[in-house]
């Protein structure tokens, strides 16, 4: 009986990610103009709405975007340093039944499978509230490989520099 109860509760939570005691309801939608099959270097945009559906004002609201790579063997949270300059929003007060719309632009830096999710907290709620996640796939694009650049970028000037030094010392008779 307990197992059935837990299963039903889990299914309900999965169907509606907004928990009963969440003060904020967060939606997340991809922009309709997003490329259907994005590749490295493309821009994606996501829209979210954070709504206070509790009976009290929410204070100190902070919402932020998280990106998780889910490729087998490469599961990890992604540092958004290069991906997005718009990582979080804050509101000192979000009144009852009011909502705030947020746009999250993102530059795709690396190929792979990703999930994006918006999380939010306020001062009164003791847990993190999250939006449903959105998954997307980033295609590989042939870009410059640093492994080849570095030897050439340092090697060619170094060779010329050695040639200059060698010439100078040869004229002085050091190398005969």
């Amino acid at each position: 009986m307990f197992k059935i109860f837990v299963t039903v509760l889990f299914l309900l939570a999965a169907a509606n990610p907004v928990l009963a005691n969440d003060t904020l309801e967060i939606s997340l939608q991809p922009d309709p103009a997003n490329p259907p099959s994005p590749q490295m270097g493309d821009w994606l945009k996501f829209h979210s709405k954070i709504e206070n559906h509790s009976s009290n004002d929410a204070h100190g609201v902070v919402a932020w975007i998280s990106l998780i790579q889910v490729d087998p063997g490469k599961e990890q949270p992604v540092d958004l340093e290069d991906w997005s300059a718009h990582k979080a929003v804050t509101r000192s007060v979000l009144p009852v039944a009011q909502q705030v719309g947020v746009e999250w632009p993102m530059r795709l830096i690396q190929a792979g499978s990703y999930r994006v999710v918006i999380s939010a907290v306020d001062r009164e709620t003791a847990h993190v509230m999250t939006s449903p996640f959105i998954g997307f796939q980033v295609r590989q694009m042939p870009v410059v490989e640093s492994g080849r650049i570095l030897p050439v970028a340092f090697g060619v000037p170094s060779l010329l520099l050695i040639l200059i030094i060698w010439r100078r010392y040869r004229h002085r008779g050091i190398f005969g």
Binding site: P142, V143, I149
Partner: peptide, 27 residues
């Protein structure tokens, strides 16, 4: 002179891999 020209090329090449905008350019 040739050294100066090669340094310009090297700086450009290094920018191509170290700068996020440039490193995402198509090959």
């Amino acid at each position: 002179w040739l050294l100066a020209l090669s340094i310009v090329m090297s700086v450009l090449s290094l920018l191509l891999v170290s700068n996020t905008e440039l490193s995402l350019l198509d090959n």
